[in-house]
């Protein structure tokens, strides 16, 4: 009797301290979130301010008057080419770009991480070296190559190189694969599985978190990139959102800042949605399904 009571008390105590810890956790997490969300709130507020209020009342988070027409003005784009066009283009470039990048990166990473072949070290270091050279320097030679191929003014220069994967993701996935015990590979191999079989059956399910991370980054990086679209796309009907946004603001002429902030806000929506959608898979990563033997 006595003992049962103490057990109950103990449980109660544990519960209480757990709840207390929960409260501390949420207070902390919410406080940090406030810092993190400030820019979005500021951006949305600015996108609703009148042109003179944007600058005379920069810090305020609540517009004195709501100017929803900023969105209409921004959406109308340039000379009849609306943001519907720019969004469509961005979706094509970022969507296919992400697909190509992630698939290729996973394949290449597996090759480096789990297959032994002559020259793998050399190729790996060359691969890393390409990451260290500022790409500003490669822009012009690359432009000349794509010009020779007659690819200027198409999405090809933006998409085809992605079929080769991205060094950042290749290296990242390599590191993830190397965290997976080799025993699994070996067991599969004894069962008569080929290298490709191992990749699909053993490795791929285990690196889902890495692939999801790669997809989120790749989408965002492609979405925000403006230098590639600037150089390779000539026809405004092919402009991406990031490029169109930059065409709004010019230091030497009148800039409709309300429209800039409005379209900037809209341009964040797909990136956030992609994040929210994909991060689901981050949580349900393989670690919890207990595939590990």
């Amino acid at each position: 009797m006595q003992q049962a009571l103490t057990l109950d008390q103990l449980k109660l105590q544990q519960q209480r301290s757990k709840r207390r810890r929960g409260v501390v956790y949420y207070v902390g997490v919410i406080l940090i979130a406030a810092f993190m969300l400030y820019p979005v709130v500021w951006l949305v507020a600015s996108s609703l301010k009148a042109p003179d209020e944007i600058w005379t009342n920069v810090a305020s988070l609540i517009p004195s008057e709501f100017h929803f027409e900023n969105y209409a003005e921004g959406w109308s784009g340039f000379g009849g080419i609306t943001f519907a066009t720019f969004f469509r283009n961005s979706f094509i470039v970022a969507g296919f770009g992400t697909l190509f990048t992630v698939v290729s990166s996973a394949i290449v990473a597996y090759g480096f991480a789990r297959v032994k072949f002559v020259g793998s070290g050399i190729w790996f270091s060359i691969m890393l070296l390409t990451l260290m050279l500022p790409n500003q320097i490669l822009m012009i030679p690359q432009y000349i190559i794509f010009n020779q191929l007659d690819w200027i003014n198409t999405f090809l220069p933006l998409l085809v190189p992605k079929l080769g994967g991205d060094v950042f993701f290749i290296f990242m996935i390599i590191q993830f694969i190397r965290g997976i015990p080799v025993d699994l590979d070996e067991a599969a191999m004894i069962d008569g599985c080929s290298k490709t079989g191992i990749f699909f059956r053993i490795i791929l399910p285990q690196i889902v978190p890495a692939l999801v991370t790669a997809a989120i980054f790749s989408f965002y990086w492609t979405w925000e990139d403006f230098l590639g679209p600037l150089v390779y796309l000539q026809d405004p009907n092919l402009y991406t959102v990031s490029l169109a946004l930059r065409a709004f603001a010019d230091t030497g002429s009148v800039t409709n800042w309300g429209a800039v902030f409005a379209m900037l806000t809209l341009s964040l929506v797909p990136v956030i949605l992609i994040f929210v959608f994909f991060q689901r898979y981050l949580v349900e990563g393989i670690a919890t399904t207990g595939l590990k033997g």
């Binding site: 090759g111 032994k116 079929l163």
Partner: peptide, 8 residues
């Protein structure tokens, strides 16, 4: 090995 890294 080379087949796997061939895309890159």
């Amino acid at each position: 090995g080379y087949l796997f890294i061939s895309p890159w």
